[in-house]
Design a binder for these strands. Structure first.
Length: 475
RNA sequence: GUCCCCAUCGUCUAGAGGUCAGGACACCACCCUUUCAAGGUGGGAACACGGGUUCGAGUCCCGUUGGGGACGCCA
């Protein structure tokens, strides 16, 4: 039997980290077993589902490289089919009409609360004669669930879990307005889509018992279930926006790489010995449900940053130049011509110093900025009269050194510092500030070579003459 | 409250009865060094608690505590 899995988000919000990981696990499982991975948009709650959320989910999945193998199924298009199944169950005596009013249900809820019991519908219409139905009340259809014994779920991650049937009540299948409930829709769709493995968040575990009863009533075989532990915030509580429950597209804007997100998310809840930082190919080869743990994990931005830094360094310089362009554009810097050449040439030194594309863009901006280069406040502070004199003195050295390569330039500057009686470090910092506008940068002579002789001379002249504007303090 | 699940360094985790309890991130120190990174070397850091079972328990069982989830005519 070939594996078929699905990711089934409801479009009531963006695609967050937890959903992304669920999608990833499904995708990897399908790839590993040579099966198919489908997407089903559970948009039956027309009041809360939005077009924007659907786009955000599709967009997020596409960015992560988790496109489904077939066109997405929209649950809202299948209402007739769901209704048909409910009616069939009704005809077979496996379901029944219930005329209990919202007021009655509320009374049951009140009483359950007072007695410290969970809310359970008491099954009052289960065997009552429909002839006694009150006028003017539209009924719902409820499943006639077993009342004795227990329902057992063999979960591929959580193991065997059982619950007494008396803990479960007769769930609503069709609402009084004739629309199907989530429980019905999910089960019918999973059957019709021939889903073999339901891999989803642990928060669905208790739903599974009811769904199992529905599969039994319908007479369909249950798919295998795998409930993966949830992701919590750093404090162990529910993941909040503060922590990283952000839309995956926001991670894209923060400068994360999709392969880094995948690698990080994979290791949150899954492991294979000591393996860290897997490529997608390795993940496909190694992933299986056996490696999924049972305990919830916490989202850790520091580790995500580290993972992203790793994958950033794996990308070629040319690719990074392309990736960087939109981030630089936000600063009003266009990547083209001489600027593009500089970025490509300087990328090796830049990418070792960045963890995200945003950091990379920040570090790379000085290569593109037109003269006179604006100075960061702490850099400007170092450019005192003494430093300016030092720069004026070293200008001819840089202008005249041949060949214009790193070792030669460095040797020339070291010799100049010695002649001038200053520490090489002082000269280097003055040069760094003049050439990059910052106290932090890639290797100084790498910068000199990338910038080229003419630009270097111009920037030194600006600095020596005190022409640079000073940026306002950050934050 | 009821039901269900979970429990190894701060965090992610390895561990399927006998290990000096391993790795990664973070942190600290040192090396490298023109800044900051990267890289290298080293360091501190964990089996929640209490009972069993066993020659032997992080590993199995029970309980306690703690955390999480589910309890809708939402999905």
């Amino acid at each position: 039997m070939s594996v078929i899995v699905r990711f089934a988000p409801s479009p009531t919000g963006y695609l967050h980290i937890g959903g992304a990981r669920t999608a990833l696990f499904n995708w990897l499982f399908a790839r590993h077993h040579g099966g198919r991975y489908l997407l089903r948009i559970e948009d039956t709650d027309r009041a809360r589902s939005t077009e924007a959320a659907i786009r955000a989910i599709l967009d997020g999945l596409a960015w992560l490289g988790l496109d489904p193998d077939e066109r997405p199924v929209f649950q809202s298009t299948r209402l007739e089919r769901h209704r048909e199944v409910a009616l069939r169950l009704l005809a077979e005596g496996r379901a029944y009409r219930c005329w209990a009013t919202p007021e009655e249900l509320e009374a049951m809820r009140e009483q359950a609360r007072a007695e410290g019991r969970p809310m359970r519908y008491d099954g009052r219409w289960r065997d009552r004669d429909p002839a006694r139905a009150p006028a003017g009340v539209a009924p719902v259809i409820r499943l006639k669930a077993p009342q004795e014994g227990e329902t057992v779920v063999e979960d591929l991650v959580q193991g065997t879990i059982r619950v007494a049937n008396e803990q479960l009540d007769d769930m609503v299948l069709l609402r009084s307005d004739g629309t199907p409930t989530y429980m019905l829709s999910v089960v019918v769709d999973d059957i019709d889509m021939a889903i073999t493995h339901v891999i989803r968040g642990h928060d669905h575990l208790t739903n599974t018992f009811r769904q199992k009863q529905l599969y039994d009533a319908i007479g369909a075989a249950c798919p295998a279930f795998a409930h993966i532990p949830l992701i919590h915030g750093p404090d162990g509580a529910k993941l909040s926006k503060r922590h990283g429950a952000l839309s995956v597209t926001e991670y894209r804007e923060m400068g994360f790489l999709p392969e880094a997100m995948r690698s990080y998310l994979l290791r949150l809840g899954w492991s294979h010995g000591d393996r860290e930082l897997l490529t997608t190919e390795e993940a496909v080869a190694l992933f299986d449900l056996a490696g999924v743990g049972r305990s919830p994990s916490r989202f850790d931005m520091a580790k995500l940053l580290n993972v992203n830094a790793h994958f950033l360094r794996q990308r070629s310089d040319a690719e990074l130049v392309d990736r960087l362009a939109p981030f630089l554009a936000k600063e009003g810097l266009a990547v083209a011509g001489e600027g593009a050449r500089r970025l490509a040439a300087g990328m090796a030194g830049l990418k070792a110093r960045a963890r995200t594309l945003v950091e990379l863009a920040r570090g790379a901006a000085f290569y593109l900025r037109p003269r006179p280069l604006p100075l960061a406040p702490e850099a400007a502070a170092r450019l005192d009269a003494e430093a300016r004199a030092l720069l004026a003195g070293v200008r001819p050295v840089l202008a005249g050194t041949e060949p214009f390569d790193e070792p030669t330039l460095e040797a020339a500057c070291r010799a100049h510092a010695e002649r001038a009686g200053v520490r090489f470090a002082s000269l280097a910092q003055a040069l760094r500030v003049a050439l990059t506008g910052s106290t932090v940068s890639p290797g100084l002579f790498e910068v000199v070579v990338v910038l080229g002789r003419a630009e270097v001379d111009g920037r030194l002249e600006d600095a020596a003459m005190g022409r640079n504007p000073v940026l306002p303090a950050a934050n």
